[in-house]
């Protein structure tokens, strides 16, 4: 069961906002959905590995060289900044 404190903690971790009514409805949804997925406990997975990828993959490496072909245009990226000054991205104080 997810408590109100749990919900506040999760909202903080995920950096998302919900109003009071939404939070209540969400807590109920969460409990319903988590109740449903609990049925996985019935599966016998005692000697089974985790399947993290759909196909056999090895770690892909490339040499540490700049490749302009792979880069987005700097102008396009800067144009997308919601707030900027002289091509610098402007944000609220970090420290």
């Amino acid at each position: 069961m997810i408590s109100k404190d749990d919900m506040e903690h999760l909202k903080g971790l995920a950096r998302v906002e919900f109003d009071e009514k939404e939070t209540e409805a969400l807590a109920k949804d969460l409990n319903d959905i988590l109740g449903y997925v609990d049925m996985l406990k019935g599966a016998d997975i005692s000697k089974v590995p985790e399947m993290t990828h759909a196909i056999e993959e090895k770690n892909i490496m490339r040499s540490d060289d700049a490749d302009d072909a792979l880069a987005s245009s700097r102008d396009d990226v800067v144009k997308a900044f919601p707030e900027s000054t002289n091509d610098y991205l402007k944000v609220k104080a970090i420290l």
């Binding site: 969400l26 969460l30 988590l34 997925v37 599966a43 993290t52």
Partner: peptide, 25 residues
Amino acid sequence: ILGTYVLSHGYYDAYYAHAQKVRHC
């Protein structure tokens, strides 16, 4: 929020790791 929950401390093994094993099955 559900994802944050299942990946959070103490729950990763019970949910995500467990699901990846069922995925193998």
